[in-house]
Design a protein around this nucleic acid. Structure first.
Lengths: 191, 191
DNA sequence: ATTTTTGATGAATATAAATTCACTTATATT
DNA sequence: AATATAAGTGAATTTATATTCATCAAAAAT
């Protein structure tokens, strides 16, 4: 009998929070600002979330899930390992370029001390297929025999910094040597 | 005739702030906590700094300067370009490993929206010699002909993520394949 | 159409943390 | 030794922001 919850509001809240994160950094994200940006009352936020911490944790999980789906999409499956690898790398690269707020948010959140252990494990699980892909590539001697977490850290860190530079420079991605940048990473990990 | 300012206090304040940054992330750095950790009164902080923002900016500049000195130390000068390059990389790697609070702080601060344009330009200038080194390496066809900022971003991002992983894992650096990790980066940028 | 139930609001409240300031203390100068 | 001056203190104040709650509104069930 009650008035139904407007599930679209969650999306509005997420979008608003991310928009503000990119503006002033996530540490200064204010609930009142999020509400205003989303076009709702501050109190309404507390219908959907128990607290600021809750909201931010949810946003993190949702965003990580989206990233995993973008990277691990069947569309990125190619005949060769190299081909799949490059497609996934490019998919993540363009995702970050088009969604810098999501990239910066996930990056900053991980070291904010706000993430719960549960959510850390949950988001890690989204990337299990990527781990398996890399393990397989290792077994087939396509890439160096280093710990998968190490390889991922190397690629992830490099990619993020590059995207940040691209965004700062204001260049269009077409003017950017994306393929050369990919080769930087690939020449590092390949055997 | 006045009581002299205890210049050692600035160092105490910096150390205290960094220690707290690594604990809970820099967004939740509290002036009262910094004062307590440094063993001084909160009011004293405001003798040395106009505001929290000021304190953090100063800490950033000082830390960046230290990093530049560590990397660009004459000790890292070798006969070969490769040798110098590796020495600088390792120097930064170990600096980050031994001073994770400084690494994390500089990283987080850059995207916090708190840094002033002046300080950004100032800290960039500390690394001018590194730019020149890379430009020279490019001219001699030792490394790829890509924008120096791009090369730096790639290396910087990868190195930071790797160090974070090392710290998280709790491994001693001897157990870590540091030279392989360096080769990841080097194989990327070399020609 | 009426009732019930929960969504939505935003001003009021609680909380937390930055900053100030009236006062005390140390030291360099006389 | 007396004095002047700035350092140092920390409780009180201000400021900022998260959270609550009395109230109203909308939809569903009767």
């Amino acid at each position: 009998m009650p008035r139904p919850r407007d599930e679209n509001k969650v999306l509005l809240i997420h979008a608003a929070a991310l928009k503000l994160v990119i503006k002033t950094g996530f540490s200064s994200l204010k609930m009142a600002d999020v509400a205003k940006e989303a076009g709702i009352a501050t109190g309404t936020l507390y219908i959907y979330y128990k607290s600021r911490e809750d909201l931010i944790n949810d946003l993190y999980v949702v965003t990580k899930k989206e990233i995993a789906e973008v990277m691990l999409s069947p569309e990125n499956q190619e005949d060769t390992l190299y081909g799949s690898f490059k497609k996934m790398w490019l998919a993540y690269f363009f995702f970050c370029y088009k969604n810098p707020e999501k990239m910066l948010f996930t990056e900053q959140f991980l070291y904010s001390g706000l993430i719960s252990e549960t959510n850390k494990a949950l988001t890690d699980s989204f990337f299990e297929p990527l781990n398996q892909f890399l393990e397989a590539a290792k077994k087939q001697s396509f890439i160096k025999d280093l710990d998968v977490e190490l390889l991922k850290a190397h690629m992830h860190g490099a990619l993020h910094e590059i995207v940040k530079l691209l965004i700062k420079s204001g260049q269009r991605p077409e003017a950017f040597p994306i393929h050369s940048m990919f080769e930087l990473t690939w020449n590092g990990v390949r055997l």
